[in-house]
Computed example of a mutant assay.
Amino acid sequence: MIENPSCNHIRFLYRPDNVWPERIFGSFMKNLSPELFEYSVKGYFIGAFDRKMPGSIDYVVVSPFGQEDAEYFKKEIEKKHSTILLESKGLKNPLGGIFETSGKYESAGLWRKRDILLAKKKEKLLGYSLLDYSPLGINFSFFFNAFTVQMFEEDDLARRCLAQESINYYIEKGRPFTVCLSESQDEKILLALGMHKKKEYAEFLLPKKDGFNILLKHFNNFYEPLDGQKPNGR
């Protein structure tokens, strides 16, 4: 991992109710400057669908992200998200990042596709959905076949339209089983659409350049035996 030039960030996924990782990473984050990491907890929602739903309703229009949206979208996501999150998700340069992610996987003999849907009211950008699509056999494949809705402005109709069009995206690709990694604001809408929450996952992101050695040191200190006692944390 240290010597891999294509690895820029370290991503840990774990159940927040799992005592061991919560204790390990929780104690680590307490001693780490907030600007050095990104942490979030998302609900894991699943649903099975046999037909498409209306994507655009009333004043909300949902459409694929395109080159003409790049400047406006970049401005909005930089206001909403941290640099760590943008870089780790390939969104620092949104248009190029989408293709760069696919290219890195292709160079390793794999494929992974990433798309963005935008919700607009006239020309105003209300929010977006980030969608991942990849083979089902890879490790943690459900994380690479899921969508996440993010809003720039709170608008329940736009949020619903993004979720519906995201479900349609997977149906069109022959994937009636759909996964959403959701923030709490999405829950009522996802339940109304027929999805249900199975569990929660915590995501802990670190830039490799600044964080990896600090993390290794933390692990060593956490498990270092003291005066013949059991290692810390056991």
Rank of each mutant, 00 (worst) to 15 (best):
S141V: 13
S88D: 01
E106M: 14
S134L: 09
M151E: 01
Q150Y: 13
F142A: 05
L157R: 05
S82K: 07
Y105L: 11
T101N: 08
N93A: 14
N93K: 13
Y105K: 08
N139W: 13
P135H: 10
A119M: 02
K124D: 08
S82F: 04
K113S: 12
F143P: 00
R159C: 05
G103I: 07
R112F: 13
L125I: 06
P135M: 13
Q150D: 09
E106N: 15
S166N: 01
L162E: 00
E154R: 09
I84Q: 03
S88E: 06
I84R: 06
L95M: 12
I116H: 00
Q164S: 12
G174H: 07
Y133I: 02
I84N: 05
F144S: 05
G137Q: 07
K104P: 03
K122S: 14
T83G: 08
L157T: 06
K124A: 15
G90E: 00
K80N: 10
E100F: 11
N145I: 07
G174A: 07
I84W: 02
N93E: 09
E100V: 05
F140K: 09
R114C: 10
N168T: 05
L157W: 10
G90L: 00
K89W: 03
A163R: 00
S129P: 08
F99Q: 10
S102T: 08
L117S: 00
A158W: 00
G90F: 00
K89M: 12
P94I: 03
K121S: 10
K80C: 14
S134P: 00
L85V: 02
T83P: 14
H81G: 01
P135D: 04
R160W: 10
Y169C: 05
K92L: 12
D155H: 14
S141K: 06
L91T: 03
M151Y: 04
G103H: 06
R112D: 05
V149Q: 00
Y170P: 02
L157V: 13
D155S: 15
T148C: 13
R160A: 14
I171L: 15
G109D: 04
L136F: 12
R112C: 13
L136W: 11
K124T: 12
K124Q: 14
E123M: 11
A119W: 00
I84F: 11
K121L: 12
F152W: 07
I98W: 00
A158I: 05
D156Y: 12
M151N: 03
D156M: 12
Q150L: 10
H81Y: 11
K80G: 03
V149H: 02
L85W: 08
L131I: 15
Y169D: 00
F99H: 10
G97H: 02
I116Q: 01
T83W: 09
I138G: 04
Y105M: 10
L85N: 03
